[in-house]
Design a protein around this nucleic acid. Structure first.
Lengths: 211, 211
DNA sequence: AAACTTAAGTAACAGGTGTATCTTTATGAG
DNA sequence: CTCATAAAGATACACCTGTTACTTAAGTTT
């Protein structure tokens, strides 16, 4: 029934399509690229495309994923005990990765249809944040009653937002600065903007979850 | 050349299309709705659609915008001097608005193509955050050297992320709780997760902006 | 109320999309 | 090496998209 992803022909075909797509993305906007364009560039039949991908978006997701394995791989090699430092290193790699693939990511982020990329980033960070925060929750004497999912989503989205700003404004600051700012905003929050004691907010208590 | 937006016929036609679209969205997925479907439902000609909207997405943006005017209107009527409380009230209205239009927004958020909505939300919050933060920056004795744009994007994205989580998880908590959590995470950040003094991070100094 | 302006409707077209059927050919298991 | 298997290629189809040229009719203006 379904296609054997280990078949040499499949691997070749998919790589072919990905590479053709990337080549086209360097030439024209995402929306302006038709499936026909992609298969022509990849020198294959249109039907073949549909055998592997539901639509153009799925091909993009595949491209982004392949690229991401690299980033995830790098992040997994960070060797620090310090959670704070770990988070900083991860963010730094994140920004450096975007910088390294500047041309590609600029294109990816610039056209609307490609918010796919954002979604992938979000998932990655949400996963990462979840782990970090989970640890903290265990050793945490405060036991802040906020569901971890919310925290993960909140932090991940915040970091992605900052990164998008950076990209859309042509990277006015170096990755080191961005990682530091992003981390600082996430951890210290706006608290300092308001003065520390003046606006102290007690952690909200968790309400009954209705069935 | 361009179409007179005040012409009664135009107003009628556009409202017609919006309403037809919303009706269809309650029946099937965004992707599954064709322009043909919309104009059939609206009892108008396909060409008419294209006279007013570039594509399906632009119609959606219009729908979202119309809905948003309401929210923005409500937010503008908050009458508190206290910045913290103002922000809480705004977030509360935000969550209540989503809750009020639950069915619609669930559909809007559920399908990928409709991340348009997120984009609109993001803009709204970025604008709001900017204003609030701008004020704070003026009276702030700390003078934290982080560009306001970054701060706005960071906070806005964080809040949107939290809201999406809430929607995607079928609103397990009441709006009051969500507004409080969202605000607490934004302002107090994860600082408390790590213990306050232990991980104190000095605000990053601003680097030279390269020409 | 009549005349003018301009939006809506009709019809047609060149592309693109996604799917089904059948043939050819590359791959990998024995 | 050979053969069964399954992926790639060729062709055709119904439907959708975005656009143009032209006609009809609703609305605005005087």
């Amino acid at each position: 029934m379904s296609i054997n992803q280990n078949d040499l022909r499949v691997i070749k075909t998919k790589r072919n399509l990905r590479e053709a797509f990337i080549r086209l993305l360097l030439q024209k906007r995402y929306d302006a690229i038709s499936i026909q364009d992609i298969v022509t560039e990849a020198q294959t039949a249109r039907v073949t495309f549909y055998r592997h991908y539901k639509d153009k978006e799925q091909l993009l997701v595949d491209c982004v994923n392949v690229n991401f394995k690299e980033l995830v791989e790098r992040m997994s090699q960070i060797t620090t005990e310090d959670v704070f430092n770990h988070r900083y290193q991860a963010l730094l790699l994140f920004y450096k990765h975007i910088q390294e693939k500047e041309t590609l990511y600029k294109i990816l982020f610039s056209s609307w249809g490609t918010r796919v990329v954002i979604e992938q980033f979000r998932k990655l960070f949400a996963e990462m944040s979840k782990e970090n925060i989970a640890e903290q929750f265990h050793v945490d004497k405060w036991r802040v009653p906020i569901p971890m999912d919310i925290v993960a989503y909140h932090f991940a989205s915040a970091q992605i937002g900052t990164a998008i700003w950076w990209l859309e404004n042509n990277q006015p600051y170096p990755p080191e600065y961005m990682a530091k700012v992003s981390l600082w905003l996430t951890l210290a929050g706006g608290l300092r903007l308001f003065g520390e004691d003046e606006f102290y907010i007690p952690p909200p208590s968790i309400p009954e979850k209705p069935e």
